[in-house]
Amino acid sequence: MFEAQMAQAALLKQIIESIRELITEATFEVSGTGMMLQAMDSSHVSLVALNLRSDGFQLFRADRPFSMGMNLNHMAKMLKCAGKDDTLTMRADEANDLVTFLFESPGNERLAEFELKLMDITSENLGIPDAEYSATVSMPSAEFQRIVKDLGSIGDTVEITVTKDDVRFAASGDIGNATIKCRQLLDTEKPEDRTLIEMVEPVNLTFALRYLINFSKATSLAPSVTIKLSTEMPVVVEYKLSDIGYVRFYLAPKIED
């Protein structure tokens, strides 16, 4: 038996909306520690890792580890039916190939029950080691989204260069070139407005912009985004979900022949 209650159905709806273009099917692994999902896009170039800790839920019960394979587009269709302020309760047990989403209005006057068919998904889970990164950049998530969208209109790839003073994003295309340089900015009223650069060694990496633009669909989930880079390694783009977990995106770099 699995049962979990979230104060805001809108949070899960937003999470699924932000990842469903990258991955259409995924298996949620449920256990006493929470709900986790790891899935690669069909080209095996990028990966989504979602972690929702059990202590971030209002109620969380998982008697034993349990896998729930879901079509994320179908899940999104149901989550769209939740009211803005509805609570969400998820229920599933191993006897049925169904997960139930219960949407309850704040005054308890409306209770909607949606049952989603679960599916068997064969997926390859990657073992991603905890690594030290050469450079870690935290910046406002809206700023990162603007940069990748702006550069996406110039070129297909972005070259990211981190030095101790700044982080540069550069793109080139048929119409010309663009470089956006962000300096470290620590003296801000709100911590989420900061741009923080932690650099062990300078890095310079190139990535396909369309994936980064896709990752930035998660902007509404967190005011700040953290980008972790090491030479010739996949980049990690992390959005922290306050009090409950994170969504991380991994993207393999482009490397010169």
């Binding site: 990657l126 073992g127 390694m233 393999a252 482009k254």
Partner: peptide, 14 residues
Amino acid sequence: SRNQWGLMDFYGCL
């Protein structure tokens, strides 16, 4: 031109 690496070039399957 640049090569697009896949994630399996970096991480092993579990």
